[in-house]
Design a protein around this nucleic acid. Structure first.
Length: 277
DNA sequence: AAGATCCACAACCGCAGGACC
DNA sequence: GGGTCCTGCGGTTGTGGATCT
């Protein structure tokens, strides 16, 4: 049926995002909220397809994201939810605020799956593996302690230490992804969210104490601070961890490169169909 | 020290479904 | 009702770093 590709492949950049691109995207979302991802690249001055922008935002730049490995409680919850929901990662992620479906999926594939296998549990069915796979005593012991062995979880599973939403499999229950619906005021990132986000906080904060690598991800900027002035501060001093994350072109990370005029120009070119990517 | 292999994670791809015209 | 657009989802791939030989 001649469905259009999500982006024209020509001139669209792929691969890892640079700091410059991140900055443009963050800045755009902060200014305009999440709206019409297809238009975002043009409006934000990015050579990316909208899909890529959306993924980058939801999986990495979103202010309410936690970072770092899932803690034990979260892991247990993922296992429990997976037993009921299967590979519906977005549903699972909805029960773990600050975690993305991609993150959980990756963690499942790289850690939990192996862990379960080691414990003698089939990661697909969550049933004990066949007896012919001779478990050594340690493994069978581990299997006995597995979350699946106590089968009477109810739908309000809440593990100690887990910063998670109570499990209620009612489809209408809370989902963090609900904030993704298109642009109204409520869609603009809540300033309070940034109090829990290290990346944004690094970008915004004054040069105070650097965030801890471990991440309680607690944050700092006073709400009344203006994003512009915050962006202008020297974040790289405060965020050595960020420099480790990607090969960022940090020195290009100049907030001044994006402004209203640029947005207007992009809007104009979008309206007129002028695409000079 | 260098090459090979493994591992973890970010990013991409293709499809499905809902909204809109 | 059908076509198109847009977004979200789940599976898969690519890449860089870590570890092993």
């Amino acid at each position: 049926m001649g469905r259009q590709p999500c982006c024209d492949k020509l001139g669209v950049k792929k691969g890892p995002w640079t700091a410059e691109e991140d900055k443009k995207l963050i800045n755009f979302i902060l200014t305009n909220g999440q709206c019409c991802w297809r238009a975002v690249p043009k409006l934000a001055g990015l050579r990316r397809c909208g899909k890529s922008c959306r993924l980058r935002w939801t999986n990495y730049l979103r202010p309410d994201l936690k970072r770092g490995l899932l803690n034990e409680a979260e892991e247990q919850l993922v296992i429990d939810l997976h037993a009921r929901l299967g590979n519906r990662w977005s549903k699972i992620a909805a029960r773990l605020p600050g975690r993305t479906d991609n993150e959980i999926k990756n963690h499942w594939n790289t850690h939990i799956k192996k862990k379960l296998l080691k414990m003698g549990i089939d990661p697909v069915t969550h049933e004990p593996l066949h007896k012919e796979t001779d478990q050594d005593p340690q493994q069978s012991h581990a299997a006995q302690k597995s979350p699946q062995s106590d089968s009477n979880h109810d739908d309000q599973t809440q593990l100690p230490g887990a910063d998670v939403v109570p499990v209620n499999l009612d489809e209408n229950s809370y989902s963090p992804t609900d904030q993704n619906s298109c642009s109204d005021e409520s869609n603009l990132p809540d300033a309070n969210l940034y109090e829990n986000d290290p990346l944004i906080s690094c970008l915004f904060q004054d040069d105070n104490d650097p965030p801890q690598a471990d991440v309680s991800w607690e944050l700092f900027p006073s709400p009344e601070e203006n994003f512009d002035s915050l962006f202008a501060t020297s974040w790289e001093e405060n965020c050595p961890w960020l420099l480790d994350c990607q090969d960022f072109g940090v020195h290009d990370f100049d907030y001044g490169c994006f402004n209203d005029m640029e947005v207007n120009n992009a809007l104009t070119s979008l309206e007129t169909g002028n695409d000079d990517q």
